[in-house]
Design a protein around this nucleic acid. Structure first.
Length: 293
DNA sequence: AATGAGGCCTGGTTGC
DNA sequence: TGCAACCAGGCCTCAT
């Protein structure tokens, strides 16, 4: 499941393989893949045809490709990989993937860019670039998203204040992309385990020190995952060349139910959380007396 | 305004 | 064996 480190791996791959290339044609094979492009698939293709990709950028789990010479100002093609989205750079003529959703052909007749997405939670769309709250130019639909912990301009104090300002459970705050972006279920559980904090701890009980620790832990674990090429549990996540990451071998909490905690040996527990799962160590991360539901 | 629940998806796995 | 239920989960929409 692509989270920030995986998306960064994809961004780097795109920077290596599609920068400065002119788009010759775009095929939309599944309308759901462009559902956030409200003008529809034909408009999506028309806006991209003939354009040259001039940048590959990312904030949190969103990435976008800058386009040259927009008629009405700067614009970009925005991508979210959802749960199963892949950006594949594939030699033309290779068989279509079963879940191929969008294909970009280039004027240089080099390898195609294919967006492949089994579960279709992801998608692509074209938007103008607008000034974002924290500075910088972002595609309009994501201009409200906070900077992520790997952003050089990330404001740690502001993010901690954002967590403490919320009135909810700590994990919900970590998953709120307007507080801090890029953290999903996997890295939330890993950061909480490293900071020895329970996911349901009310944010009003979080000290500044604890806030710094849990966000610092999130940055550390994402750095480690990026160094390992991203987390992958199955064949759904691959980078632009189709190679999987292998950080899942290093996970301490996520998916480790009933296995001994690496710190204390207590079996990791799995709790239901937002119709999903939270994994934590019952001993290192004791449930607070007043847990947030 | 801020918070939280529900819905969208598919394919692999589990259980009867 | 066949089929249904369940599970993964980011984020948008809607209700409170």
């Amino acid at each position: 499941m692509p989270e920030l480190p995986e998306v960064e791996v994809v961004r780097r791959g795109l920077a290596d393989h599609v920068l400065d290339r002119q788009i010759a044609s775009v095929d939309v094979a599944h309308p759901r893949a462009v559902r956030r492009h409200t003008a529809g698939g034909d408009d999506f293709a028309a806006r991209l045809t003939g354009r040259t990709i001039t940048g590959a950028r990312r904030r949190g789990k969103y990435l976008w490709l800058d386009l040259d010479g927009g008629a009405a100002g700067d614009d970009a093609v925005l991508a979210h990989l959802g749960m199963s989205g892949q950006m594949l750079v594939v030699d033309s003529g290779r068989d279509d993937e079963k879940h191929l959703r969008i294909r970009f052909r280039f004027a240089d007749d080099g390898p195609e860019l294919r967006f492949v997405d089994q579960r279709t939670f992801g998608g692509l769309s074209v938007h103008p670039l607008v000034p974002a709250v924290g500075g910088g130019l972002l595609p309009e639909p994501v201009a409200h998203i906070a900077r992520d912990p790997m952003d050089p301009a990330f404001d740690l104090d502001a993010a901690v204040a954002g967590i403490r300002r919320r009135r909810t459970g700590l994990k919900r705050a970590l998953l709120d992309q307007t507080v801090v972006s890029g953290i999903g279920n996997i890295y939330a559980d890993e950061a909480l385990w490293r900071a020895r904090l329970h996911w349901a701890r009310p944010t009003e009980m979080i000290t500044r020190k604890q806030g710094h620790e849990v966000l610092g832990a999130a940055a550390e674990v994402m750095d480690a995952a990026l160094a390992a090429g991203g987390t992958s549990f199955d064949t759904l996540y691959v980078n632009v060349n189709g190679a999987s990451g292998y950080f899942d071998r290093s996970l301490d909490a996520y998916g480790q139910a009933d296995r001994p905690c690496r710190r204390c040996g207590t079996p990791i527990r799995r709790d239901a959380f937002m119709n999903r799962s939270s994994f934590s160590c019952p001993r290192c991360q004791p449930r607070p007396r007043r847990a947030h539901p």
